[in-house]
Simulated assay, not measured.
Amino acid sequence: MSTPRHAPARFARGWHCLGLVRQFTDGQPHEIEAFGTKLAVFRGQDDGRLHVLDAYCRHMGGDLAHGTIKGDTLACPFHDWRWGGDGKCAAIPYAQRVPPRARTRAWTTLEENGQLFVWHDPQGNAPDPGVTIPRMDWIDDEASDWSDWSWDSVLVEGAHCRELVDNIVDMAHFFYVHHSVPTRFTNVFEGHVATMYVESTPRRDSGMELIGADLSLRSDASYHGPSYMIDRIWQPLGDGTEAESVLVNCHYPVTADSFVLMYGVRVRRLPGMTAGQAEEAAARTAQGVRAAFDQDIEIWRHKTRVDSPLLSDGDGPVYQLRRWYEQFYVDVADIEADMLRRFEFEVDTRHAGEAWEREMAANLGRAGAPGTS
């Protein structure tokens, strides 16, 4: 029996999404357990900006996430020390002066696509301008015919977030876990971006009733850095038109062996569809996404970490993906050329498709035989 191997305690360098901007703009501070610590998120009353600080006050350890927003500062509930978004203590009401060393960690933030991001780097380096979160101009222009985000999150315990990233090269699990049949499966890795191109049809023997399970689809899904994926999805409707949606799949680590998985869906309005109907369609699609992630999470809950998997010729480029992924876990000076070099790989789906077709036919035959159900 294999022995579980724990994930390394280092967290990935890169932009990590903490959630939708609107989640943090209610006039209250919010707490986030991430990167082995606690963060406090607040919106300044005067500057209107979202700020992220280490949550525990440097004075006597009060929890700033349980404090009060006063102007552009976050006041500690213990002694009312007031911390600015830049990490400096701006005031101590009962003291004549603020100690010069009264500073806490202020996290670098980014607001993009209606979401809040923080930059994490174990070395403390500023973000590389070339490694950023792309703006979805195609759904956020003034004439947008897209729904708003239907958004949800789940805490995944007992698993490193690499398990989630591995999915983009794991063709076979789509059949066995998600009840779909990939007919095209291609990966391209280059720089800080890793992409999966998929075309698939539904399993005819699954009996699944997930939203969209009766439709084939085409998906272009790219990780931009270690934790933020944009997945564009097209589904034919049979009348020559396509249903178009976008799925954001993102996460941030809580501990070395747990992470918060978040996902959001936006749906493009079809001709004749009202804005309200588009919102309903996005919510239904998000329910289907949650069902699929629940299938993954159930696998992760019971599996062990395998750093050197034994692969077959029908598997995807697991080692190449993990080499790409390694760039986010080493010092910048230790990033090697092959972690960034362009790599392309297309899985030959023909043999798998023939085997799966036989399996589905056999399952359907048994289901239709007398005395079976």
Results as ranks from 00 to 15, higher is better:
342 R>Y: 05
246 V>F: 12
168 I>W: 01
138 W>N: 02
212 G>K: 08
369 A>P: 01
143 A>Q: 15
57 C>Y: 09
277 Q>P: 00
123 Q>M: 04
290 R>T: 13
335 I>K: 04
187 N>D: 02
286 A>K: 11
225 G>E: 04
334 D>H: 09
220 D>T: 12
371 G>S: 10
103 R>Y: 09
242 E>C: 06
80 D>K: 13
217 L>A: 12
55 A>S: 15
30 H>A: 05
83 W>F: 04
335 I>G: 00
81 W>C: 09
365 G>S: 12
368 G>T: 08
153 S>D: 15
271 P>S: 06
322 R>N: 10
263 Y>D: 05
227 S>W: 03
322 R>L: 11
91 A>N: 15
306 V>N: 09
173 H>R: 05
134 P>F: 08
332 V>K: 15
63 D>Y: 02
352 A>Y: 06
345 F>E: 12
96 Q>C: 14
107 W>K: 04
272 G>M: 12
77 P>R: 11
100 P>A: 12
83 W>Y: 01
347 V>Q: 02
71 G>I: 05
126 A>R: 14
173 H>L: 09
134 P>Y: 07
40 A>S: 09
74 L>V: 14
294 D>A: 12
329 Y>M: 13
179 H>I: 01
136 M>D: 03
132 T>R: 09
247 L>D: 07
306 V>P: 00
59 H>C: 08
303 K>L: 12
203 R>K: 11
62 G>R: 02
63 D>T: 00
194 A>P: 03
264 G>W: 05
286 A>H: 09
259 F>Y: 14
269 R>V: 10
370 P>W: 10
166 D>K: 02
58 R>G: 02
174 F>R: 00
188 V>I: 14
85 G>D: 08
302 H>I: 11
252 Y>K: 05
212 G>Q: 09
87 G>F: 06
92 I>L: 14
317 P>L: 10
300 W>F: 15
355 A>P: 00
273 M>A: 11
311 L>A: 00
94 Y>L: 14
88 K>R: 15
64 L>D: 02
233 I>Y: 05
301 R>T: 10
58 R>A: 15
134 P>S: 01
65 A>R: 07
219 S>F: 06
232 R>K: 13
362 A>S: 13
250 C>L: 11
216 S>L: 02
349 T>V: 14
349 T>I: 05
249 N>R: 06
186 T>Y: 13
269 R>G: 12
254 V>A: 05
218 R>E: 15
29 P>D: 08
12 A>H: 06
120 H>G: 01
118 V>N: 02
61 G>S: 04
93 P>V: 13
275 A>M: 00
53 L>W: 06
317 P>F: 10
67 G>H: 09
220 D>R: 13
10 R>H: 03
223 Y>G: 02
96 Q>W: 11
199 E>Q: 12
118 V>Q: 07
328 F>V: 01
371 G>L: 13
84 G>H: 11
187 N>A: 12
172 A>G: 07
286 A>P: 01
360 M>K: 03
369 A>I: 00
201 T>Y: 05
144 S>V: 09
164 L>W: 06
189 F>K: 08
188 V>M: 07
150 S>L: 08
208 M>I: 10
